[in-house]
């Protein structure tokens, strides 16, 4: 048997990592990232002469993983939205691995980007933009099920993209013919036990601890719907606000804390029913209007109204003072 030196072993391993793109229009440029079942490669589309991202399955002999990756491609294809990365192509490479090709997004993950956004208001505005593609997907009967800061990308021009729809689930068959029922059956057979953070390995309850709704943690597929994603959005909001221990949610920001709490309520029935309802509360918070998640006291309402109309209040107060002064000094 031939002895393989360290250099040869390293070279063979490196060769095996590169997807076999022979016979395709793509040329691998470099490895970008790896997930639970697939890796992302930056590649050149030699026909259109542009860079694209290829998501390539790690193993080539798992029909289950292959169908999951293709399902993800189908979901992306069904979701044409500026906040969802477009898929261009899908297929099987010569080495047997399933792949799909999508737009290459340069930018930062939300968790890396957040330190550059110190303002709470700006963070809530960012949150509003994250909810848009999720609401869009829900309108098409698709839920994401793995919403977390690592799956949100902020592009170089501030565009917000919700990534990694690998755990996406079709709630109805309005848009595509994906077999949600069979997916559910697969999942019900899986053993409990969540995947490690940052991964969505198969063979267990799918998702990421800390961002998974209780019904998802239990593997209660029947109760998973758009409110499962609302929990995930609440968890992202939670990261944006910082933990209570960090003191980010201060007395003046109780309403935003209440929005987070309602989005992350353990009982799905007590969460927001739709992303639009969550969005409305976030928008109301930004506009200094009342939010449905928080019952404010009279004093708080007064303070909020003052804050909301402070320019007018100051102008009126200044007018009244001037008027008073005028009356006082114009007396004979």
């Amino acid at each position: 048997m031939k002895w393989l030196g360290d250099g040869t072993v390293d070279r063979l391993r490196a060769n095996m990592q590169v997807p076999d793109l022979s016979g395709t229009r793509y040329r691998a440029i470099r490895y970008v990232a790896g997930g639970g079942m697939a890796a992302i490669w930056l590649a050149e589309d030699t026909v259109l002469q542009r860079n694209v991202a290829l998501k390539v399955l790690d193993a080539d002999d798992s029909p289950e993983l292959a169908s999951r990756l293709l399902r993800e491609a189908h979901i992306l294809a069904a979701l044409e939205h500026p906040g969802i990365v477009p898929v261009h192509d899908a297929g099987t490479l010569q080495d047997g691995r399933v792949f799909y090709c999508m737009k290459y997004v340069e930018g930062q993950r939300l968790d890396e980007f957040l330190p550059s956004v110190p303002s709470l208001v700006e963070r809530v505005r960012l949150m509003l933009r994250i909810t848009e593609p999720v609401a869009f997907a829900h309108a098409r009967g698709i839920i994401h099920r793995d919403l977390k800061p690592e799956n949100v990308m902020i592009g170089p021009f501030g565009e917000v993209l919700v990534m990694d729809w690998g755990l996406g689930k079709l709630l109805s068959d309005r848009s595509t013919q994906l077999a949600a029922a069979s997916l559910d059956a697969d999942e019900q057979q899986r053993s409990p036990g969540a995947t490690a953070p940052g991964s969505t390995n198969h063979g267990s309850v799918l998702g990421t601890p800390g961002y998974m709704a209780p019904e998802q943690l239990r593997g209660d597929v029947a109760r998973m719907d758009q409110r499962t994603d609302i929990y995930g959005l609440g968890a992202i909001l939670s990261v944006m606000l910082g933990s209570p221990a960090e003191g980010r949610v201060t007395r003046g920001h109780r309403p935003i804390g209440a929005i987070r709490a309602k989005a992350m309520h353990p009982d799905p029935d007590l969460r927001y029913g739709t992303v639009e309802a969550l969005t409305a509360d976030l928008a109301n918070y930004l506009a200094d209007s009342a939010v449905s998640a928080y019952s404010e006291s009279y004093l708080e309402r007064l303070a909020r109204l003052f804050h909301r109309h402070r320019t007018a209040v100051i102008l009126i107060a200044a007018y009244l003072v001037m008027r008073l002064l005028f009356i006082l000094f114009s007396r004979p």
């Binding site: 391993r13 095996m16 076999d20 490895y31 790690d58 193993a59 002999d61 798992s62 080495d95």
Partner: peptide, 30 residues
Amino acid sequence: FRACVLQQLREMSASDEEFRREAKAILGID
């Protein structure tokens, strides 16, 4: 060769899960 490695690895692994883990670690992407 890649197919041979995977075939060999599968035969050396005790379960599908171990196979996937090992494939990830050995062929592996990270």
